[in-house]
């Protein structure tokens, strides 16, 4: 699996943990009619397993950006980084499979067309 794909999987898992991790947030889903168990233990294990597949320096970079911004990854749509809304140099789009950062905001970017 490519590193960028692993990071997207990790980010989606972090979104799930964030959304259902706290009893208050979970309550809004439970009030609609869903029965949800506390995900902390189960998802933390899945997260650890996934994180082990990511090279340590890259994982550290992800965690560092996450501390600064709520989202460490930002999509690129129509050549624009949707983290900071700056147009990216077009040559970056030729290296889509690599892990690249937005030169303006520093978020890790992925192409979403």
């Amino acid at each position: 699996m490519k590193e960028i794909e692993l990071l997207i999987r990790l980010h989606d898992l972090d979104l799930l943990l964030k959304e259902l991790g706290s009893p208050e947030r979970r309550k809004s889903f439970q009030s609609i009619g869903f029965k949800i168990k506390d995900p902390t233990k189960k998802l933390a294990q899945a997260r650890e397993k996934l994180a082990r597949k990511i090279p340590k320096p890259l994982l550290a970079r992800y965690e560092r950006i996450r501390q600064r911004y709520e989202r460490a990854l930002a999509p690129v749509i129509g050549g624009i980084c949707y983290g900071c809304f700056i147009r990216l140099p077009s040559e970056m789009s030729t290296r889509r499979d690599e892990v690249q950062s937005c030169p303006n905001c520093g978020r890790i970017i992925y192409w979403l067309e």
């Binding site: 997207i8 999987r9 898992l13 995900p39």
Partner: peptide, 16 residues
């Protein structure tokens, strides 16, 4: 594949 994996993880916390 990524989305399916997230949906299945969600299902494991309680069936939808």
């Amino acid at each position: 594949d990524v989305i399916i994996s997230t949906l299945i993880k969600r299902e494991q916390l309680g069936s939808t």
